[in-house]
Amino acid sequence: MHTLVDKHADAVVHANLAAGLSTPKVSAKDVNVYYGEKRALMDVSVDIPDRGVMSFIGPSGCGKSTFLRCINRMNDTIPICRVTGKITIDNQDIYDPKLDVVQLRARVGMVFQKPNPFPKSIYENVAYGPRIHGLSHSKADLDEIVQSSLEKAGLWKEVKDRLNESGTGMSGGQQQRLCIARAIAVNPEVILMDEPCSALDPIATARIEELIDELRKNFCIIIVTHSMQQAARVSQRTAFFHLGTLVEEGPTTEIFTNPKDKRTQDYITGRFG
């Protein structure tokens, strides 16, 4: 059983890496985003594979975060924001009016730039998702989910004796790992990370990056990052955004060693950004 599952996961990853994109997990076609009159994202089309890390890079205000927030429809919370085009997850259109946004977000987790644990205990933070989505049937069940999520987030050993303490009392890095644990507690299919390390120190950043590397075996992870080094370290594929357009997308090594577009070249060599 052990080997079988591991092998399966590895197999999928390898297959994806090898074959490029046979069955994309998330697929976007001609996505445009408008804030009122302003067009923030222009005709973005991209396919994102399952079980792997995709990173979005680009200068500030290039639309990478905006695009990320389209994938779990967080843009719905901004009244003036309008999205056109088509985004699918497993071939299901997520902007289908019949689709329930609450259920969508249970399938697409998100980790934010600034750690934002709820002002509750560590336990409650992690148990929140399973509870509202009815994932557990008993207290023991919930305890198990909380423990395994915290374990997966590499936080269990540090917090197991103080699960009832407030989540806001931890260090920044711990808080962010708590947010990741919170996100994976409902076993989403996709995890969106919006510059998850920008508020952290280098050591905490290294831990999160390790964690991301671990999680990619089970999840489809999309990460927005400011740091090209981070993109190079954690992701298998990279997309470069500039002024609201997707300039170039491909395997990370290729983008960083042999970019096709001049703008990508300029950015990664540090001529702007």
Partner: peptide, 23 residues
């Protein structure tokens, strides 16, 4: 870093959206 063990993986359960109870 905790490794993902077999039992963990076996327990993976996704949010159920299709069953009538879920609805």
């Amino acid at each position: 870093m905790t490794d993902i063990t077999a039992s963990d993986a076996a327990r993976v359960r996704r949010v159920d959206v299709t069953s009538s109870a879920a609805k």
